[in-house]
Design a protein around this nucleic acid. Structure first.
Lengths: 126, 126
DNA sequence: ATCGTTGCAAATGTTTTGCATGTCA
DNA sequence: TGACATGCAAAACATTTGCAACGAT
C-alpha cells in the first residue's frame, strides 16, 4: 500500500491522494490516507513540504539523504537538488552568529520547462 | 498601532501577540490582530514565516529587501541574513533544469548563544 | 450621513483523535 | 482471542468572513 506514491514525482496533498485513490476504485478512507502518509513520512520514506495554503505535500524521493527540491508551482513536479555549498554556507553563517545545532529548510520554486514551454503565455498571465 | 511589533526581534504568532496585548491592557480583538498583521505583511512591513505547527509568525525586519533568517528554535529570536551566493546558486540550479520565474525560501534554524550558553545542557537534552 | 475600524460569532479547511467494527493469524 | 488496520464522526486549531455596532469626520 506504500506503493501509492511510488509512481509520481510530484508533491501531492493527502486530500489529492485520497481523491485519486477513490477515482481508481480504492474505497479508502481519508483518515487512513493521513495515517499512512504520516507513518511513511516519520519513517523517512516520504519527503514533506508545507505549501502556502497550509497543506502538507508528500513525495517519494530517490534518496533518503538530506536534499532540497526545485518545485514547479504550476504542475507541482519536483526535482531533487543537492547543494553541498549551501549546507556549508548555512553552517558557516550560523556558526558566525554563535548558533549551534543547526538545521535549515530550502526550497526553490519556479515554472518547469513543460509548463512554461509551448504555452509560455501561461507564465505571464498569472 | 503598527508599533505593536516595533519592539521585538523575535518571530511572533498572531495568537501570541494577541495574548500579549491583552495582558498589557489593550483589549483588542483577535480578529483585529489578524487583520493588522495581514495588512502589514502585504504591505511588506512584516516578514512572515510559517512554522511546523502551521502557524504564521511575523516579524518587523530592518530591511525591506530580500533576505533570510537565522532563527533560534528555543527563544524564536531571529537574525537577518544576506546570502548573495545563495541567490545566485538558486538561480543557476533552477536555470540548469530549465525552470523560469524562480523564487525560493530559505531559513536557518539553530540554538542561539544565549539559549545555549550558561545552560548549554539545554541544547543537548532535547 | 458616511466611511473605515472593530469584535463577536460562525464558517472554513486541514489534520487529528475517539471509538466501534472488521480482519487475519 | 488478540493485536492491528480501518472508517466514520467529532474534535482541534489557526485563520477568515458575515454582519452589526461604533466613532470620527
Amino acid at each position: 500500500m506504500a506503493a501509492l506514491l511510488a509512481d509520481t514525482e510530484t508533491f501531492t496533498s493527502a486530500q489529492d491522494l485520497h481523491a485519486r485513490l477513490r477515482e481508481q476504485g480504492e474505497p479508502v478512507g481519508l483518515t487512513t490516507v493521513y495515517r499512512h502518509l504520516q507513518f511513511l513520512a516519520d519513517a523517512g520514506e516520504l519527503d514533506v513540504v508545507r505549501n502556502d495554503d497550509g497543506e502538507n505535500l508528500y513525495r517519494r524521493c530517490g534518496t533518503h539523504q538530506h536534499h532540497h527540491h526545485l518545485v514547479c508551482h504550476t504542475c507541482g513536479r519536483a526535482v531533487e537538488i543537492e547543494g553541498p555549498e549551501i549546507e556549508a554556507w548555512a553552517e558557516r553563517v550560523a556558526a558566525a552568529e554563535g548558533f549551534t545545532t543547526i538545521t535549515h529548510t530550502l526550497e526553490i520554486y519556479g515554472t518547469c520547462p513543460t509548463c512554461a514551454g509551448p504555452q509560455a503565455a501561461d507564465s505571464l498571465r498569472k
